[in-house]
Design a protein around this nucleic acid. Structure first.
Lengths: 270, 270
DNA sequence: CTTGCGCCTGACGTTACGTGAGGTGGTATG
DNA sequence: CATACCACCTCACGTAACGTCAGGCGCAAG
């Protein structure tokens, strides 16, 4: 029946926590050992060891000291402890998902940076911003764009995503490089050709026309117009444009010049 | 060439960050907008929007504001940015591993709590503490115990672990229940029989004897003795005993009484 | 003239401790 | 006996990234 006691430093060493931490737990009424009446020194006993292990265990599960304090009184775990565990579980799962998203974004970014020697900062930011909320973008798009196009717009595997990004990146590079040149410039033509092929991998001409119709907003449906406007605003808020307004205006003009004939051509066929 | 500007609240709304956060970034020299000379109001411009997106992106990757500040000056990402990303990556991977360990522990605990109606707190703490550092325990054991036994002692799949724990749990329950009864009591006998079978699933009689020899410490090898002592201390520090000293003493006596005959019996066979 | 709005600065609260500073009782050494 | 040192005590500030008041200013409407 040995009644072993420890001074605070002994206790700290034998449990592996710091003296300061023990002070803190005492201060916060989480673990209050007996005191030497005269000198005020803390005296830890076996029972405190068990309590401390309980604390460490709950901390390891990711619980806050406030939660822990709440579960320290009863001698057996009650039902509320299961609830707490379940809560912790879902919290941890969420955390892990966030980490997974960030990790994928990092890996994709490193990949891009390694392959392209000089990457424009604005473009990279835009891509990363886009990665941050791919899911949210997909959610938003669901009300506006057809399901089968969405599926192609948001590829599942990281590999395909990386190809996607590589292409966007080189496209923006060329926009920046050629901005200001006339539409009939051969390199501009080449750029637009490539871009068109890229788009066509994701959709087809008819769907594209549909999309253009939707976003041109010239049908009288007020409610729908509202919805589409907020959609565009949301996307703009989530993903910043990687090109300047000047470049954007130029690009828009180029696309109109480029698409015009194609449009009519298709129209003629029908 | 419209030169759009925003007040702080407009800017906050259109980017989705709080006014206080913008104040904070200004204070910390991370994002300092122009000022209205007279009233001192902050004036945000398009350029600030891009900068803020850059900040948000790096934050999303898990970087600290200090790191972010460091990468805010140059207009293109330099090589040090890749290094930072790599660093972040390994940090996130570590975090995720911790989360995985905690999640598995939670799931195993919930499983136990659901199957056993009343779980003793001390036993549960002991199990959870053990889960926290399974890897470390395994590392420690490597210097002392034979590899093939280690493999059986530390099962890989969560399922087997849960079976393991269930058994330990019921065993401790029975120890607590029968403590004090004589060795020839039928229920005690049953308990010891079950325990013996449990042990035999992990090892065999010869290895068990070896283990007993090792831990009895009666060979003169000082150095080895030292190693084994520190091993035992480490394990005791990591995993608290879920039973009282009284129960432990009783159990030890029961085991000696139980093993004695078996020992001799085997000895006689050789 | 008062009220209210949007903005400003300053300051304290948050979590789980780390890191001193300055004071006390008990012991080893000169 | 004086002194140094040790282990302990309490008090208090610092950390990261903001949230949340509190008090004050310029400007517009009632």
């Amino acid at each position: 029946m040995k009644n072993e006691t420890f001074s605070i430093s002994e206790f700290a060493k034998s449990t592996g926590v710091s003296v300061r931490t023990l002070h803190y737990y005492d201060e916060k009424d989480i673990l209050k050992p007996k005191r030497d009446e005269y000198r005020g020194h803390r005296i830890y006993e076996k029972e405190d060891m068990i309590q401390l292990h309980k604390i460490m265990t709950m901390k390891f599960l990711g619980m806050s000291l406030d939660d822990i304090k709440h579960h320290m009184q009863p001698d057996t775990f009650d039902l509320s402890f299961i609830d707490t565990l379940r809560l912790q579980e879902s919290k941890l799962i969420k955390d892990r998902e966030q980490i997974d998203i960030a990790l994928e974004a990092i890996q994709r970014t490193v990949h891009l940076l390694e392959n392209e020697k000089e990457v424009d900062q604005a473009v990279l930011i835009s891509l990363l911003a886009s990665m941050q909320n791919e899911r949210k973008q997909e959610e938003l798009a669901k009300g506006i764009i057809k399901d089968d196009i969405i599926k192609k717009m948001f590829p599942q595997t990281a590999k395909v995503k990386m190809l996607f990004e590589q292409r966007l990146l080189t496209f923006y590079k060329r926009v920046r490089k050629h901005c200001g040149k006339p539409a009939n410039h051969p390199e501009v033509q080449q750029m637009l050709d490539d871009f068109y092929r890229f788009i066509m991998e994701v959709t087809d001409v008819n769907s594209l026309k549909e999309l253009a119709d939707i976003f041109s907003l010239d049908m009288g449906d007020k409610e729908n117009e509202e919805r589409i406007n907020t959609y565009i605003q949301e996307i703009e808020r989530l993903v910043p444009t990687p090109i300047t307004e000047e470049e954007e205006a130029w690009l828009q003009q180029m696309i109109i010049d480029y698409m015009g004939p194609l449009w009519d051509e298709e129209e003629g066929e029908n």
